[in-house]
Amino acid sequence: MREIKRIYIIDDDPIFVFGIKRFLEMAQLGEEFVHYANGKQALDGLIALGGSSSDWPDLIMVDLNMPVLDGWQFLEAYSELQHQKKPLVFIVSSSIDPVDLRRAKEFHFVNEFVVKPIGAQQLKEIVEKYK
């Protein structure tokens, strides 16, 4: 039984971030939400925590199209990080390009590719799978 308390949302779209937080709250998923506007900020945050920290998130939701460090670059860098806690990683993007889908599969630690828009019910169903 996996507990999902701390959720990282890495997305540059404030409207989406606003919406997704509300959906997660409605679905009673997670207790703490951390928002990063791009991959760089998120990476810096994780590095600051250090690999042995128990403060690592339980779920990371990362968008693909972002400024500074995009989703792919973030995932590349993330795979290099040494850490004990292995969070769930969801790509949450509006891309429906099969090329992106294929590329996502190359990251074995990515659990889901979620296509936006996403509703509260759908979100709940997906997360429930990993509880």
Binding site: D13, I15, F16, G19, F23, K116, P117, I118, G119
Partner: peptide, 8 residues
Amino acid sequence: SHVGNFSM
């Protein structure tokens, strides 16, 4: 993206 947000 925008329509997604709109629906959401």
